[in-house]
Simulated assay, not measured.
Amino acid sequence: MINVALESLSVEEKLRMMESLWDSLFYAAATIDSPNWRGEVLAEREQGVSNGTDQFESWEIAKETLRNQLT
């Protein structure tokens, strides 16, 4: 295990470290079990779309909505 004082790292170093962690998780994805609650949440969302109480919006609209909320 690697212990790093995060405060001592530059933003660029932290981003590189995060990228390495995500790459490592990506390549190990087949061995990682998804928790049961995720399947339950997905089933609830599918049910909401099926019965018309929920709907999808395009990624572009979602990004614009988030940008507007943050400004």
Results as ranks from 00 to 15, higher is better:
residue 59 W to T: 09
residue 9 L to E: 02
residue 20 S to E: 09
residue 11 V to T: 12
residue 24 S to V: 01
residue 64 E to G: 02
residue 2 I to K: 08
residue 52 G to P: 00
residue 69 Q to Y: 04
residue 59 W to V: 13
residue 55 Q to K: 11
residue 2 I to A: 04
residue 46 E to V: 01
residue 57 E to Y: 00
residue 56 F to R: 01
residue 42 L to Q: 03
residue 59 W to Y: 07
residue 47 Q to A: 14
residue 41 V to Q: 00
residue 26 F to G: 03
residue 55 Q to T: 09
residue 15 L to D: 10
residue 63 K to F: 13
residue 8 S to F: 06
residue 69 Q to N: 07
residue 46 E to C: 05
residue 34 S to P: 06
residue 51 N to S: 04
residue 60 E to T: 14
residue 25 L to S: 03
residue 46 E to Y: 02
residue 65 T to L: 13
residue 52 G to Y: 03
residue 51 N to Y: 11
residue 51 N to H: 04
residue 40 E to N: 06
residue 27 Y to L: 10
residue 20 S to I: 05
residue 9 L to D: 08
residue 5 A to W: 05
residue 7 E to H: 13
residue 35 P to D: 00
residue 2 I to T: 12
residue 15 L to V: 15
residue 26 F to K: 09
residue 24 S to K: 12
residue 29 A to E: 13
residue 32 I to T: 01
residue 50 S to F: 14
residue 2 I to C: 07
residue 57 E to P: 00
residue 47 Q to T: 15
residue 21 L to G: 04
residue 62 A to L: 04
residue 45 R to A: 05
residue 13 E to F: 10
residue 70 L to H: 13
residue 37 W to I: 06
residue 66 L to P: 03
residue 12 E to T: 07
residue 43 A to H: 12
residue 2 I to F: 02
residue 45 R to D: 01
residue 44 E to F: 06
residue 45 R to S: 03
residue 53 T to R: 06
residue 39 G to F: 10
residue 2 I to E: 13
residue 67 R to A: 14
residue 69 Q to S: 02
residue 48 G to I: 00
residue 52 G to T: 03
residue 70 L to W: 11
residue 59 W to P: 06
residue 67 R to L: 10
residue 46 E to M: 10
residue 7 E to M: 12
residue 35 P to G: 06
residue 14 K to E: 12
residue 69 Q to T: 10
residue 44 E to G: 02
residue 14 K to V: 08
residue 59 W to I: 15
residue 4 V to F: 11
residue 25 L to G: 12
residue 54 D to F: 11
residue 48 G to K: 04
residue 57 E to D: 01
residue 16 R to G: 06
residue 53 T to C: 11
residue 5 A to S: 06
residue 1 M to F: 14
residue 70 L to K: 09
residue 49 V to C: 05
residue 28 A to I: 13
residue 39 G to S: 07
residue 25 L to M: 15
residue 51 N to G: 11
residue 62 A to K: 02
residue 17 M to T: 00
residue 47 Q to F: 15
residue 34 S to W: 01
residue 51 N to C: 03
residue 20 S to N: 11
residue 55 Q to V: 01
residue 18 M to R: 10
residue 35 P to F: 00
residue 54 D to S: 14
residue 19 E to K: 12
residue 25 L to R: 14
residue 19 E to R: 09
residue 7 E to S: 14
residue 60 E to C: 12
residue 9 L to I: 02
residue 3 N to G: 05
residue 11 V to M: 13
residue 67 R to I: 06
residue 68 N to K: 15
residue 15 L to P: 00
residue 10 S to Y: 01
